[in-house]
């Protein structure tokens, strides 16, 4: 035993010192950086997998809301319908970054006064558009914000304009299943086509057909002779405020909404200084003035607000 111990001691004494830079190994034989390299490897594999999935999934056209109905979440709807009177008044009818189109007056036409879902005839706001259309996409924001001052929308859906058209995938909504109730006005809408192309026909999938009255009004007034901003007869969107005021196209550029989501835009609506919210709120004041001019200036709180009064001036609406 003594000899053996002596040999061990000598061996320990003769052991060469560890070279600088030599890999340190643990008693169990694992390198000290094993955890680090395993972590790096795992992270690289996961990130590579995510990127691979992203590349594969984006190789096919990604048209949002191409199928099914996607109800607007309550949080977004409350932001759309909950813009405060002070925000409307502070914004008025001007936006810092873009011009906002004023509705065009129409005189001498037969008022629409169509029946609502409750069978009662009221002054009618008539909208004709399509889900693929980027200008309709921009204008629906204004319509929901403005008309919610006079009544209540239900069953509005999330939508995006065509991914292959101008201002692709503009975030918006669809009125395809929407209902609107108001003591002052009725709302009649036609979403004429989906946001996807039928490969068999090469044109948009058809969605809702206008009835005779809707078709007649569209053909009669959706022309450059009545609406200067319309380039060709039948351009969309077309909005008639009981045939007293008309809008053809969007009141502001849909490019403002590019690369944003409904929730992002909606969360900016109640900020009067928001460059994103201003065009929508300013246009909504103009639409509100058009509605007030058709329904006898009701409700008073809306129609006498300073934002709507500013719109009245711009549209040369005389109120008592």
């Amino acid at each position: 035993m003594a000899t053996s111990n002596k040999k061990s001691t000598n061996a320990a004494k003769k052991a060469p010192p560890a070279r600088p830079g030599a890999k340190r190994r643990t008693r169990s034989g694992r390198p000290a950086g094993l955890f680090t390299w395993v972590t790096i490897g795992a992270v690289v594999i996961v990130i590579a997998g995510i990127i691979l999935i992203k590349v594969v999934s984006s190789s096919t056209p990604n048209q949002k809301y191409a199928t099914g109905f996607h109800p607007v979440p309550a949080s977004i709807m409350s932001e759309l319908t909950g813009v405060s009177l002070s925000t409307f008044n502070q914004v008025g009818i001007n936006a810092s970054i873009t011009a906002v189109t004023v509705p065009t007056a129409l005189s001498g036409a037969t008022e629409l006064n169509w029946k609502g879902t409750d069978g009662v005839k009221r002054p009618t706001v008539y909208y004709f558009g399509a889900e693929y259309c980027p200008f309709c996409a921009a204008e629906r924001w204004v319509m929901i914000v403005a008309l919610s001052r006079f009544g209540t929308f239900t069953n509005v859906g999330l939508m995006a304009s065509s991914s292959t058209d101008y201002a692709p995938n503009t975030p918006t909504y669809t009125f395809v299943n929407a209902t609107y109730t108001s003591p002052y006005i009725n709302f009649s809408s036609v979403e004429s086509a989906k946001n996807t192309v039928n490969p068999k026909t090469g044109s948009w999938y058809l969605l809702q057909k206008p009835n005779k009255a809707q078709t007649a009004d569209l053909e009669a007034y959706d022309t450059p002779s009545y609406i200067p901003s319309v380039q060709n007869a039948g351009d969309i969107p077309f909005i008639s405020f009981n045939n007293k005021w008309l809008i053809g196209g969007a009141q502001y550029s849909p490019l403002i909404l590019k690369n944003l989501s409904q929730s992002t835009i909606a969360s900016d609506l109640n900020y009067s200084t928001s460059l994103l919210g201003q065009p929508i709120i300013a246009a909504a004041n103009l639409l509100s003035a058009a509605v007030c001019d058709t329904d006898g200036q009701m409700p008073v709180a809306v129609c006498t607000s300073s934002g709507v009064k500013a719109a009245d001036s711009a549209m040369s609406i005389k109120t008592s």
């Binding site: 340190r24 190994r25 643990t26 008693r27 169990s28 694992r30 000290a32 950086g33 094993l34 955890f35 680090t36 395993v38 972590t39 790096i40």
Partner: peptide, 17 residues
């Protein structure tokens, strides 16, 4: 990554060098 360099040894998960 920094912690993987020191924590396993600190906590004795890999034994001492």
């Amino acid at each position: 990554l920094t912690l993987t360099r020191v924590s396993p040894q600190q906590l004795g998960w890999m034994g001492s060098n």
